[in-house]
Every structure is written in C-alpha cells, then in structure tokens.
C-alpha cells in the first residue's frame, strides 16, 4: 500500500483530534483537575493583578471616577511609598467591605468567603474554587445584594452566572406588595420581572428580592428595583423592567455563601 504525504498529515490530525476528545472526556470526569489546579495556582495572582490594574486604569480615564488618593499616589515619587500606599488602600477597601458585609441584614450563621474577581466576560471568574470549599450553585453576594450563583468550579477558580444572563431564572417577590414572579436575564445587561399575576400591584422603585424557595439563594437578597411596569389587561401576566443596583464591571471583590 502506498500512502501519500497528505494521507499521513490527515492521519496525524485525526489521531490528535481523538486524543483531544479523550482529554475532554477525562477532564469532564475530573481526572485532570490536578492540571487545572497547577495552572490556576500559578496564573491566578497574575490575572488578579491584571484585572485590578485595568479597573484602576478605567477609573483614571474617567475624570469623574478618578480617586483623589490614587492621583496623589501617582504624584509621589518614592516607589516604595507608592507600593505601600497601594497595599494600604487595598486592605482598607477590603476592611470596609468586610465591615459592610458584617452589618448586612443577613442571617449571622452564613459562612461567607471573600473572593477576588479575575475576569468579567459572560460570567464573573473568581479566584476561589473547590480547594476553598466552593461548590456548584453556591450563591454569590455583596452586602445584601445578589450577584449570582456559581455554575462551574475548578480547583482554584469558579465561574459565576449573573442574574442578567439569558440562562438565569430566579424566583423572586416584590418587597412591598409581596407579588411573586420570576426574574429573568435579557441580553446580558437587562432584567425582567416576569410571570406576575395581573391582580398584583407593582410600583416603580419597589425592590425585588429572593424568595428562598429554590433552596439555592437565601431569602431577602436584593436583586434589583422596578424601573417600569408593563401591564396589559389582555395578558395573563404582567412584567416589569428592572434596573440593577450594582455595576458588575466595577466589582473587584464578592462574597460566596458556602452554607445555605
């Protein structure tokens, strides 16, 4: 039998595709998690610094968001002092965040884990994973605001699905009227309070909170507030457009609820 060079080339290609498929299946069954763990331990600190630097640069580009402390820091010529200031600022922010979280009206027995954000694209990528006790479906919060829930976990990082994601559906109630419905994501940026009975009273600026019935999120976590109510007498349900109370792009730290 005579094989041409292109036959050989394609044979190698097919073998590599089959090896990739095997690797994919092995990884799906968590046999290769040690590889993810090794890479994440080494790369997560770099990613975290890059993300934080980009966030700071974004704020500097916008004069209205510029932090006076940060400008003063830039003016200081001593590099050592600059680094120290940066460290102090970070610790202060973290301290304020922890204090705020402790003061939030959530049950005291919740076990919270502070996580840094590594990336924000479709999902939030955070620097805590299965080695830190994070599990799939753990809620992610900031103060008493719902940020999302964990949808995939690896050794040292996890992905968080946000309420604005089209795949996200959360059972919720209007804090004032008690009207029940479902908060669904739209176009990655918008939220809709859907499946609310026509007889229920929804008003602008009402807060929409979690019910806790799904056994995923604790009750009374704030999701968003009502921006506009869409009610037609001919429909079975009414809907409301919601506005977010937090800008996900500006987040740098969040809390994961480890026990529900």
């Amino acid at each position: 039998m005579v094989f041409s060079q292109s036959d050989n080339k394609n044979t190698q290609l097919i073998i590599l595709v089959i090896i990739s498929l095997f690797i994919y299946v092995f990884d799906r069954n968590n046999y290769l998690s040690f590889l993810h763990q090794f890479v994440q331990i080494n790369f997560n600190p770099i990613k975290k610094n890059l993300y934080n630097t980009s966030q700071t640069q974004k704020n500097n580009l916008n004069p209205y968001l510029a932090d006076n402390d940060f400008i003063n820091k830039l003016q200081a010529k001593d590099t050592a002092v600059k680094l120290l200031n940066k460290k102090i600022t970070e610790l202060t922010k973290e301290n304020i965040l922890l204090k705020e979280q402790l003061n939030s009206p959530l049950p005291a027995d919740l076990s919270l884990l502070l996580a840094n954000i590594l990336n924000f694209d479709r999902y939030l990528v955070i620097d805590k994973g299965s080695l830190d006790g994070v599990k799939k479906d753990n809620p992610v919060i900031l103060d008493d605001l719902l940020i999302g829930k964990i949808i995939s976990v690896s050794a040292k990082s996890s992905k968080v699905i946000l309420p604005t994601d089209p795949d996200s559906k959360i059972q919720a109630i209007d804090q004032i009227s008690g009207a029940k419905g479902i908060v669904a994501g739209k176009f990655q940026t918008e939220l809709v309070f859907d499946k609310v009975l026509l007889k229920e009273q929804l008003k602008k600026d009402d807060l929409i909170i979690t019910t806790g019935q799904e056994q995923i999120f604790p009750p009374n976590l704030i999701i968003a507030e009502i921006k506009m109510v869409n009610k037609k007498e001919s429909d079975i349900f009414q809907t409301a457009d919601l506005s977010l109370l937090v800008d996900y792009e500006k987040l740098s730290k969040v809390f994961i609820i480890l026990n529900k």
Partner: peptide, 24 residues
C-alpha cells in the same frame, strides 16, 4: 498540527475551559 494541539490545551488551562475542547 502538534503545535496547534498544544496551543489548544494551554488556552483551555489558562481560560479555565474544559480541557481539550479548544484543541478539537
């Protein structure tokens, strides 16, 4: 081809994607 295979693996490891998917 081998280079592309390894690029896929590195990419998946760093982006925390299922390993092997990008290679395929």
């Amino acid at each position: 081809q081998l280079l592309i295979f390894f690029i896929g693996l590195i990419y998946d490891l760093i982006l925390v994607n299922p390993l092997g998917l990008s290679s395929i």
